[in-house]
Design a protein around this nucleic acid. Structure first.
Lengths: 329, 329
DNA sequence: TTGAAAGCGCTAACAG
DNA sequence: CTGTTAGCGCTTTCAA
C-alpha cells in the first residue's frame, strides 16, 4: 500500500515535518503564521494526504480504536447495542472493532489476545458466560479500559437494564390477568441477565403466594425456546402461560404452541423480554418488556470514555409492553 | 497502556530482538537451535508478551485488518453477511472492522478516509447507493483491495445473488398461482439489487403478456414497505398481489394489509425477497426467495483474499420459497 | 514561530 | 545459526 508521507507534504509546503504535524494536531493555536498553515493545508490537499494511523499509534501509545466483543451480531438485540456503541465512538473520532464471539467461550478468549495485540484503547464487553478471569485481568493490568454491557461481571463497571424490576412488573401483570400455572423458560445459568429476570419474576409471584409451576433453562436462542416449550407443553397439559427470558425464546415458544395446535392466547399466554423488532412482527404480538438496547450501547460507550470518573453501575429503566399474546379476563 | 516489548523478551531469553522476531514470525524453519527457540518461547510465556501490532504494521506495511462497510448492521441480511465475512477473516488471522454507514452516503464517504488512515488491507463493501467515485478511486490507487457484496459497482469484483433469475422464478410462480393484477414495490433506484429484481420480474411477466399494474420505489426498509403498500392498496382496490424488493418491505406490506382489514392471502397475495429470519416469523409465512447472506459474506472475503487472481464476478444461486402469503387456485 | 533529532516497537537486510 | 543496523511514519522535546 503506497502511502503519501508527512515528509512529502512538508517538502511540498517548504516546511519541516514537525510543522505539518502541528497543523495536523491542532497544536498551532495562536503561535503559527497563518500563511505557513495555509501552505501546509494546501500541500495536504494537493497530495490528498492521510496520516498513517499505525505510526501515530506507535508514537502516542493510543490507537483510537475501541472494540465491542459480543456473543452474536445477528441477534437483533446485540446489533442494536453495537450500533449504539459505534455511534458514540464515531462522534468521538474512534473506530469500532466488532468482535463476534459466536456464543463460544473459546473464541471469546482468543479475542482477548487479538485485542491486546491490536492495542485497543477500550472494550465494551458482552460476555458469553463466565469470562476467562486470567485474560481479563491481563487486559486490566495493561490498562485497557473495559465496560460490561447487558450482563454483570464482578469488579467491572456495567450498564444493564432493570431486569429484576421489569420482570417483577411482568409477573404482576400476568397475575392481574389471572394467570396462575406459569412455566418460566430462563436464559443460561451464570448470566446475570437471565438470573435477575428469573429471580425478579419469582419474588414477585411469591408476594401473591405463587411460584412458577415449572422452570427450565435455555440459552436465549429461538431454538431453545422452541424445544423447551414443546417439552413443557406436552408434559404439563394444563399450563396457562409460558414466560421466557427473552423475546427470541418467547417466539420459539409461540411456534411450539402453534405446532402443537394450542391456541395463543386463548389456551396459553406467552411473554418475553427485550422488545426486539421481531416481537412486534409475530401474531399475536408479544407481551414483553422493552429494553433500550441502542441506548445501552451509547451509555456503555460513554462510560468507557469517561473512564475512572464514571459510575460503577448504570441501570436503565425498562417498560412492560402489553401485547396480544396474554389477554384473559 | 504499558507494553512488554520484544527487547525485554530478548533480554530475558539472552538473545537478540531479531531472534525473538524470527520465532514470532515462524522464520526459524530448520535453521534455529531448538534450544534457543525454547528459551525464547519460555521468555514470551514468562512475560506474557503480545507483539504490538502498530509497530508491526508500520514495518510491514500491512495491518492485518479488513473492513466491511455496510448500510445497516441491524438489518438481519447485513448482519448475517457481516458474520460470514468475519468468520473467513478470523480463519485467516485477520481482524474485521465493521463500519455502519447508517444508510447515509455522507457517512459512507467519511468512512473512506478513516479506512485509509486505518490502513486496512481490504474492504468488503455494500454501498448505500452510487458510491463517491473519487474516494473509491483513491482507495484503489493506494492499493486497498476491494470487493463489492450484494450490489454491483462498475469496475469492481462483486459477489451477488442471482436476483434476476430469482425474481423471474418468483414471477412465474405467481402467474402460475393465478395472480394477474400485481403491484411491485421496488428497492431504491441506482441499487443494482433493486433494479435486477424489478427487471427480472417484469421480463418474466412479459413472457405471459403481463406487466406489473403498479410499480413504486422504496428504500428496502420496513417503513417504506408499509407506507407504499398502504398507498397502493387504497388507490387500487382490486389489487391481487404485492411483490416487494425485499422481505422487510414485504413485511411492511403485510402489516399495511392487516391495518386496512385486507385478508392475506385470501384477498391479497404478498411476496418478498431474501428469506431473512423474520420472514418465517410472520403469519402467514412469507413467500420469498432465499438468498444465502452468510455464504455471500464468506465468498466476498474469499475473493478479497485471492485478490487479483479471483474472478471478477460471482453469482450465488437463490431459491424460491413458497410460503402461505400466496396460495390461490 | 519553526526546525532538528530522537525514538515509539518491530522486521528485514546484511554480516558474521 | 544469530546479532547488528537501519529504518517504517509519526510526534515531541529541545533549541534556535
Amino acid at each position: 500500500m503506497r502511502r503519501v508521507t508527512i515528509k512529502e507534504v512538508a517538502a511540498l509546503a517548504g516546511v519541516s515535518p514537525s510543522t505539518v504535524s502541528r497543523v495536523l494536531n491542532g497544536k498551532d493555536a495562536g503561535h503559527m503564521r497563518p500563511e505557513t498553515k495555509e501552505r501546509v493545508l494546501a500541500a495536504i490537499r494537493a497530495l490528498d494526504y492521510t496520516p498513517a494511523k499505525a505510526a501515530r499509534t506507535l508514537r502516542k501509545r493510543k490507537t483510537g480504536v475501541i472494540a465491542i466483543l459480543l456473543p452474536d451480531i445477528s441477534n437483533p438485540f446485540f446489533s442494536l447495542l453495537a450500533r449504539g456503541v459505534a455511534s458514540v465512538a464515531f462522534e468521538h473520532g474512534l473506530s469500532t472493532l466488532i468482535c463476534d464471539s459466536d456464543n463460544s467461550l473459546e473464541k471469546e478468549t482468543q479475542f482477548w489476545d487479538i485485542l491486546l495485540a491490536e492495542g485497543v484503547d477500550g472494550v465494551v464487553f458482552v460476555p458469553v458466560g463466565e469470562p476467562d478471569g486470567a485474560k481479563v485481568e491481563k487486559l486490566r493490568r495493561r490498562g485497557v479500559e473495559m465496560v460490561i454491557a447487558d450482563r454483570r461481571v464482578p469488579g467491572f463497571p456495567v450498564v444493564e437494564a432493570d431486569n429484576r424490576g421489569g420482570s417483577a412488573s411482568l409477573a404482576e401483570l400476568l397475575v392481574s390477568l389471572g394467570y396462575r400455572r406459569i412455566a418460566y423458560l430462563a436464559g443460561p445459568k451464570g448470566v446475570s441477565t437471565a438470573e435477575d429476570r428469573l429471580e425478579g419474576f419469582q419474588v414477585a409471584l411469591e408476594k401473591h403466594g405463587l411460584s412458577p409451576t415449572v422452570v427450565r433453562c435455555g440459552d436465549f436462542t429461538y431454538e431453545s425456546g422452541y424445544s423447551l416449550a414443546r417439552e413443557v407443553l406436552s408434559q404439563h397439559p394444563g399450563m396457562e402461560a409460558i414466560v421466557a427470558g427473552n423475546d427470541l425464546m418467547a417466539i420459539g415458544a409461540l411456534r411450539a404452541a402453534e405446532d402443537l395446535g394450542i391456541a395463543v392466547p386463548r389456551k396459553l399466554g406467552i411473554a418475553g423480554f427485550d422488545h426486539v423488532f421481531p416481537a412486534d412482527l409475530v401474531r399475536p404480538r408479544l407481551t414483553t418488556v422493552a429494553v433500550p438496547a441502542y441506548q445501552m450501547g451509547k451509555e456503555a460507550m460513554r462510560l468507557l470514555i469517561e473512564g475512572a470518573k464514571a459510575p460503577e453501575r448504570k441501570v436503565l429503566p425498562v417498560k412492560p409492553i402489553l401485547g396480544e399474546s396474554t389477554p384473559r379476563r
